[in-house]
């Protein structure tokens, strides 16, 4: 559980380590199936389309579109109190997968569904950089 005032720093697993290694280099990676070409996120042992185990890490374009969003006025914990109001969003990557993120670099009220955005990285620790998105 997250203690008050401490942000929930992701703890990579064997399965997710390549993703966080990419983030550390400010590179957003997802898996691509070598058998059927399907891109997927989060990382998995098999392709969710064809069940092939030939899932390989690829660098994405970092481009995405806002699928939906909300502006948070009441923070989830004190750790996020300094960020209020902040935007939590779901975005669809140009490669297809969707992910949760924050939209940063603009007034929360300027965010809209369909907005084109580009990945940017927030360096939380020496090893963990959290991918967020900003307007193109």
């Amino acid at each position: 559980m997250a203690a008050p005032g401490v942000k929930p720093v992701p703890v990579p697993t064997k399965e997710t380590q390549p993703y966080w290694d990419g983030c550390k280099q400010h590179e957003l990676r997802v898996q691509k199936c070598a058998a059927c070409g399907h891109h997927q996120f989060y990382p998995r042992l098999y392709c969710t389309t064809c069940m092939s185990d030939r899932v390989e890490w690829v660098k994405t374009s970092g481009r995405a579109t806002v699928l939906s969003y909300t502006i948070i006025y009441r923070p989830v914990t004190q750790a996020f109190a300094g960020n209020v109001p902040y935007v939590v969003a779901l975005v669809t990557l140009a490669e297809g997968p969707q992910m949760m993120t924050n939209i940063v670099g603009c007034e929360p009220e300027k965010v809209y569904i369909g907005m084109p955005v580009q990945v940017t990285f927030d360096d939380w620790t020496e090893d963990i950089s959290v991918p967020k998105f900003k307007p193109v």
């Binding site: 989060y42 948070i72 989830v76 993120t101």
Partner: peptide, 11 residues
């Protein structure tokens, strides 16, 4: 999700 959702602070 501990790695892919909670870092973004969604209540």
């Amino acid at each position: 999700h501990a790695q892919f959702e909670r870092p973004y602070g969604p209540p």
